[in-house]
Structures are given as C-alpha cells and as structure tokens.
C-alpha cells in the first residue's frame, strides 16, 4: 500500500497532483520514467509518468488529468488515503546530456512530465528554451516551475486567455527559423501536438524526442499492449521507451490504438457513478 501524502488540484479540478510515499521508487526514479498504478482491488493498471521525486522524503509525484473511471476515482482520494499498487520506475530514463541548446515543448498534462526532463537537461548544463501550452489559462500547469528552470519560456493558449494565442508549434517554428544552434527538441504532450512538432522539426532536420503514452497493462514488457511502430519496427513502449525518436514514430497508429477502449471507458465510468 502506498500513501498519498499530498494532494493538489492544479487546474479546475481536472488536473491533480499526488505526492505518494514510495521510497524504493523515489530512490531510483529518473526523468522520463513512469510508474504503473492500480488504485484498488478491482482497479485497472494505468501508466503514469513520474513528474518529480524526492529521494530524501521517499516520495514521487504524479500528475494526471481526469479522463476516465480510474482517474476520476483517483481524484476522489484524499491526503492520507492509500493506493493499492504502485510499481516502478519503469521504462528507460530520458537520455540526458549536455548538447548545447535544447527546446522543451509541452502541452496539457504533458508539461508535468516535461518539467522533470527539463530539470534534468538544465542540470546537465544545457541552455533550455521552454514552450508550454494549454487549451486555456486555467488548464495551464507548472508555469512557475518551468519559468524558474528555463532560460527562456514561451506560453501559449489555444484561446489566447494567457500568453500567446495559438499552438506551441507557432513559437517553435519561430525559434527554428531564428536560431541555428538548436541541437535537440523534446516534445511531450497530446499525440497530435507531438505529431505536429515532429512534422515541423523534420523540415529543419532537428533531432526530436517524444514521450509516448500508449495503453499498457503490466509495464514490464510482458503483454505487448503498448506496442508502437517506430522506424517500421514494432517496439514495446514500456521496455524500449517511453521516449523515442519522434521522426520515426507512427503517430496515427498510436492515436487509433489509444482509442480502442473509448466505449468501455464510458461504460466503466457510468457503472462507477451508478
């Protein structure tokens, strides 16, 4: 059993942050890795990226958006409540080195993961440019934390309620046009955002890493449910990823695969409400 020591509602109750006691995971977790969470005995196993960790306090931070039954159930948990199973840290850590100038692009809850990777890149001595976006101001998370870490930060919202109006790809294009020293782009967010970022960086031939979030069960390479096509080869996101060269990922396929259980998700949510 794993205790929730801190709960914070980050955006209108739809994005939630948990700090969970998991000393063994906290001691090992690196940026880019994830945990699998099962809330209770009848729960499903869902992957959630480790947004931060505190090895000294023995806690890990997860940030999730409420989208389905399990995340709705997690929102109802309070500080001090217990989560049945948390296993990790899974997946390969992000490959962090000092490459010079990097652009970190994040959208929606993706910023939660991005912020952990950004921290690592900053600590490695890179010049970090951050671009984060959300649908509207209230859904934007971790802006202050990102601003503290990044050498430059651009904020966008789809409706223009905060920062620049539009998508993260617009400021990204501007940077790619203006600066010639960008060595790497890291994009974490909704599939469509990562796809658009990759289409853009491909034109400028800038290496781009993305962090994928397919459906998973065990997270240890056993089920193969998380398989993604990278460079026309099947890769298991849980053991070969979750970070991949974005230019080689088949995003359309990933999007469709993630939608397989939309009907069941609704059914499950309805069942739990009843």
């Amino acid at each position: 059993m794993f205790q929730i020591v801190r709960k914070q509602e980050m955006a209108k109750g739809s994005i939630i942050r948990f700090d969970i006691t998991a000393p063994k995971i906290a001691a090992k977790a690196k940026a880019g890795q994830f945990v699998i969470v099962r809330v209770n005995e009848t729960g499903e196993r869902i992957p959630l990226t480790i947004a931060d960790k505190d090895a000294f306090a023995g806690t890990i931070t997860i940030i999730f958006q409420v989208v389905g039954k399990t995340t709705a159930l997690m929102r109802s948990l309070k500080e001090g409540d217990l989560i049945r199973d948390v296993v990790g840290p899974l997946g390969k850590p992000a490959e962090v080195e000092n490459v010079g100038t990097v652009i970190m692009v994040g959208g929606g809850t993706g910023v939660a993961i991005l912020h952990h990777v950004t921290k690592a890149f900053k600590e490695a001595g890179n010049y970090v440019i951050g671009i984060i976006g959300a649908k509207e101001k209230d859904l934007l998370i971790l802006e202050d934390e990102m601003r503290a870490m990044c050498d430059e930060l651009v904020v966008t919202t789809d409706d223009g309620s905060w920062g620049e109006r539009g998508f993260v790809t617009q400021p990204l294009q501007k940077y790619l046009e203006e600066r010639y020293d960008i060595k790497l782009v890291y994009a974490i967010g909704p599939i469509v955002m990562m796809k658009n970022v990759c289409n853009l960086t491909k034109k400028y031939n800038i290496p781009t890493m993305v962090s994928l979030n397919p459906i998973m069960i065990d997270g240890t390479g056993m089920c193969g449910g998380c398989r993604v096509t990278v460079d026309n080869k099947i890769q298991f996101c849980c053991v070969d990823g979750p970070d991949f060269n974005g230019h080689l990922v088949d995003f359309d396929e990933l999007e469709k695969r993630n939608n397989i259980y939309l009907k069941e998700e609704k059914e499950s949510l309805l069942y739990s409400i009843r």
Binding site: G43, E44, R45, I217, E264, E267, S268
Partner: peptide, 16 residues
Amino acid sequence: RMNLMKAYRFPEYDTP
C-alpha cells in the same frame, strides 16, 4: 486482461 485483471467481469472490474 482476462485472468489477472479479471476483465471478464468488466465493468465490475475496471480493465476493459
């Protein structure tokens, strides 16, 4: 899905 996660008892169990 079917054995460990008991999906055959969906939606009582959450795994589709």
